[in-house]
Structure formats: structure tokens, C-alpha cells
Design a protein around this nucleic acid. Structure first.
Length: 290
DNA sequence: TGCCAGGCTTCAC
DNA sequence: GTGAAGCATGGC
């Protein structure tokens, strides 16, 4: 158990932000994460003060990197257009968000099955997969499981996958698992590709479209230039920006900006405002962004 | 009962 | 190349 002073870090906000489905709020100020066969609990002690339920060595070797604590998020916040009221408020609400450095394989499968599902439903599906096909992590308790390996999912039948409530996404998950397990898709090697090549490689997988590919790029490969546009972000762009994406202004880190917008949108009380012409930054449509 | 959820593939045209 | 239809499941 170690205690640390960390700025711009809000584990509860990150757990709610929809980028990671194995991060749970256990109680106010207490969050757990399971990542690459390890589990850690984080306790919020006070402003910028946190306790991690692991050794200092594990914090330095695993969790500092996972939570992207080496990155200074201040320049991202300072670059936000002060006349953009929506984004200024969103960034203030989400100033403790960070883009996690997750396992690309876990991100790939999680976002394949995210299609047309709510975040709680995705979380349930991921947990079902882990319980059914993941290795038990007995050192953390009888009810803790690792994310399934590609081999484990590739060896599952359609019936077994469908039993995890995957619906029509079951063949997508199976195809991706077979491709990765067979070495046809080498996920670690993809990290060496440039952004466009990485995008095209991900799009070649059955069941992976532009939105899911961008999620994998952002959350699995830490390509901060990738900004997934889903129904929520689409609504923000329509309602707050008159249909013109603000991402062009934030080249190189629009994935971070997107995450502030997404968090603000899903944690708001869903005010269904009519389309407004409030923020109209110059720039191209969001469609051109990775 | 109907609509919607971090969409994608398939098939007309 | 573009747009609509169809797709499973669960929550509200």
C-alpha cells in the first residue's frame, strides 16, 4: 500500500468515462481496476492524494503507465478555446480524466461488443466473458477473473459466446479472436504503424468499423489524435456546434477533447436542447479525423 | 409496448 | 459510392 500525490487524476470520473469496462466504483472514493491479470484498489484520500493497494514497485512498473501519469494534461486544458463555453465546462468537469493505456486486445473485444449497447450493458457483457473464459485470479479473491486470452475466445463455440449475451456481435468477437490467436493480426506489432496504417489494419477486421477502430486506437494504442464519433458525440456536434466538429482545432490530441465532451454528455441529465448555433469554430467536419 | 444504446454488414440502387 | 434495412439484448 502506497500513497501518492497525483494532479489531474480522478479515478471515479475515469471509471464512468466509458473508456474502460473493468474499472468499478466500489464505494464513494474507492475504485478497483483489473488490467493484464492484476487488480488494484485506489482510495481517494483528499485533493490530489491517493492510496494504491499495491507495492511501490508495482505502482511504478504497472499503474503509473496504465493511468498515463507520465503525461502532463495541463497543455491540453490550456489549449481549449476560452470562447467555447460547452468545451470549457466539459473540460472543467472532466479535468481528472486521463486516456488509459489499456491492452489493445481487451479494448478491441470490448468495443466490438459495445455496438448499440449502453455502457452498463457492455460492462455486464465483458464481465460475463471474463467469468466464462478468463483465468481466475485467486490471489485477489474467488470472484476475480482476467480478461480472456485470444486463444480462449478463439476456442469458444458460437453457442458459448452467445450465452454471454453478445447477440449479433458474437461472430465479430469470434472472428477477431481467431485472427489474433492465429497470428494473422499481430496486435503488439500494430503499435509500430503510423496512424493511418493502424486505422486500416483495424478496419480490416470483421465487425470493426471506423468508430470501433478509433476507440481501439485511442484507448488501446494511445493515439491521442483519434476521436471516436458515436451517437453521443454526434449529438454534441449537432446541438452545440451546428453540425461542425470542433476537433480540427485540436490536432494531435482531439481524442482527449473528445473524452471531455463524451464524459460531459453522459454525466449530464440528458438535456434535449434543440440544435443551437452557439459554437461555430472554423474547421472541417469531424469525418476527416482519425 | 416502443425506443434506445460508445455500429457494422449487407444489399439495393 | 451512397443510403436504408437488418441485426440481439436489456434497461427504461
Amino acid at each position: 500500500m502506497g500513497t501518492y500525490h497525483i494532479e489531474h487524476f480522478d479515478p471515479e470520473a475515469i471509471a464512468l468515462s466509458g473508456q474502460c469496462f473493468r474499472m468499478h466504483i466500489l464505494a464513494p472514493g474507492r475504485v478497483e481496476v483489473i488490467h493484464r491479470g492484476r487488480r488494484v484498489e485506489i482510495a481517494v484520500l483528499g485533493e490530489d492524494a491517493f492510496a494504491f493497494s499495491c507495492s511501490d514497485a508495482e505502482f511504478e512498473n504497472v499503474w503509473r503507465h496504465f493511468f498515463d501519469l507520465e503525461t502532463d494534461y495541463r497543455p491540453f486544458l490550456e489549449a481549449i478555446d476560452k470562447t467555447d463555453h460547452y468545451l470549457t465546462c466539459a473540460a472543467e468537469a472532466g479535468r481528472g480524466l486521463r486516456i488509459l493505456r489499456q491492452d489493445p486486445w481487451e479494448v478491441l473485444i470490448s468495443f466490438i461488443l459495445s455496438q448499440r449497447k449502453s455502457i452498463p450493458a457492455i460492462r455486464d457483457n465483458v464481465e460475463k466473458l471474463c467469468r466464462r473464459f478468463g483465468e481466475p485470479l485467486a490471489e485477489y479473491g474467488p470472484d476475480v477473473f482476467a480478461f480472456p486470452t485470444p486463444q480462449a475466445l478463439a476456442g469458444a463455440s458460437m453457442e458459448e459466446l452467445s450465452a454471454c449475451s453478445l447477440g449479433y456481435r458474437a461472430p465479430y468477437v469470434r472472428a477477431a479472436a481467431i485472427s489474433v490467436a492465429a497470428g494473422q493480426t499481430d496486435l503488439p506489432a500494430l503499435s509500430g504503424l503510423d496512424d493511418e496504417a493502424l486505422l486500416q489494419s483495424l478496419l480490416s477486421l470483421y465487425g470493426v468499423g471506423v468508430k470501433v477502430a478509433r476507440c481501439v486506437m485511442l484507448f488501446g494504442y494511445h493515439r491521442l489524435c483519434a476521436a471516436p464519433v458515436d451517437v453521443w458525440i454526434g449529438r454534441v456536434i449537432d446541438q452545440e456546434y451546428g453540425g461542425v466538429s470542433p476537433f480540427a482545432r485540436y490536432a494531435g490530441f482531439c481524442g482527449v477533447i473528445q473524452q471531455y465532451m463524451f464524459y460531459q454528455r453522459i454525466t449530464a441529465k440528458r438535456p434535449e436542447k434543440p440544435a443551437a448555433q452557439k459554437n461555430l469554430p472554423s474547421g472541417a467536419s469531424h469525418a476527416i479525423h482519425l
